[in-house]
Design a protein around this nucleic acid. Sequence first.
DNA 1: CAGTGGTCTAGACCACTGT
DNA 2: CAGTGGTCTAGACCACTGA
Lengths: 253, 253
Amino acid sequence: MQGEETASAANMSAVLEFDSDTAKHEQVRTRLIEVIATMNTGDQLPSERELAAQFGVSRMTLRQAISSLARAGYVSRLQGAGTFVIDRTISKNTELTGFTEDMAARGFNASSRLLKVERVAAGAFLGHELILSPEEMVFHIERVRMADGIPMCLETIDLPADLTPDLDQQPLEKSLYAILATTYGIELFEADQIITPTVVNQEQARLLQVPIHSPALIVKRIGFDRKRRPIEHAISIYRGDRYDIRLVIKRRE
Amino acid sequence: MQGEETASAANMSAVLEFDSDTAKHEQVRTRLIEVIATMNTGDQLPSERELAAQFGVSRMTLRQAISSLARAGYVSRLQGAGTFVIDRTISKNTELTGFTEDMAARGFNASSRLLKVERVAAGAFLGHELILSPEEMVFHIERVRMADGIPMCLETIDLPADLTPDLDQQPLEKSLYAILATTYGIELFEADQIITPTVVNQEQARLLQVPIHSPALIVKRIGFDRKRRPIEHAISIYRGDRYDIRLVIKRRE
DNA sequence: CAGTGGTCTAGACCACTGT
DNA sequence: CAGTGGTCTAGACCACTGA
């Protein structure tokens, strides 16, 4: 029953040719985002039953798409009333994004300055964090990350070397996540983050081009793949005057 | 088809008497958390089909419960392999919790010292944040929040006065969220948060009992109800040496 | 009251994992 | 290959909102 297509004539804008490679609910989701983009905050979406009919999917499938949009903060559902478009000024930081995507979402152009790449033994601390023996090798990367050419954060990343052979040969001025995905087939699935405040020391002040002892955020992140194997250990220091962390948090989704 | 009960004899521990007030998938979720609590990190759960049979629900309903647990970080699902228990050491900060719950999760006993409560006009800034006219009244609350008696954060909260008459007569040393829920029937559904770093000034240093210019986190929060009407505007300053923010973020759930 | 989202079912096929 | 989670359907009733 899954590969069916409604071969009906084109009605309105909502006709969907389903690509059998991608889940229907995902294609519906993508289409809905386009629709929402043309609407205003507070506008009501057509009812679930109506949308399901328009897209030619069952209501359950349509609901999967809308549920995803509700979690991501695109729309809000209210039983008995309807589904409404939400103000999207707050960035959706519950989803895992790299610096590059993150900056793109804020309208900046991301770039990097590579300070150091080396292949070294993990040592006790990193070995523990990445679940390696201390003798195993890791790639150690230090970068300054910039938005429209302005230094935004200092990044120190360590990755198990056996997962990413020749990583030091890669263009590390670009998005590391993109390199991991395309070159090594490694996809980050989730990450644990710990956010603490600090003040920058002299070296950090110089690299970030801010006064010494300026407030900054330390974001420590351990990234995992789908099987929750540790992929990366990263410590980023964000300048506090030009960067904040925005979250939408919900009461039990 | 909804109110049915399997009146079969008790088999194993998983028999469920369904309370018709609560959604089945929620009751299943609750029961599953109890089961998971007795298991170890990495243990595999029974298959979805098996669990559905045990609980006497359809597989879709069972999946709703497990999906919720996966989002909340209790379990991880891997197609083709199974569903596995996840290490729960990282606190689940994607869910909206008050300071009281937050501290309880970390094993501390929360308390407050009330510094000020007053009923004042909202003014231009708060009027804008809470969508009120500047003349409308708000309750303005300032508290020091403590964990096991140690000052952890300074809290400044403003709420529209018409939603919470006589709020200044309430025991504000206790959980505000609890008062809102029980006394006024107001439930926070979601909140937008912005996190920035800072250093404490002299007054803040005194109240938090830390050295002047110590690093701290400013958390600005606007809380909304289910209809996304603003309920509270809060600015909290957390000391950086004893408090951090932990997040689990995922790639598109 | 009509219309909305919320829940639930039974059964089916697909995609993936590990042996 | 068997077994797992992932997707999908068609139809039903419930709970809630707003006029």
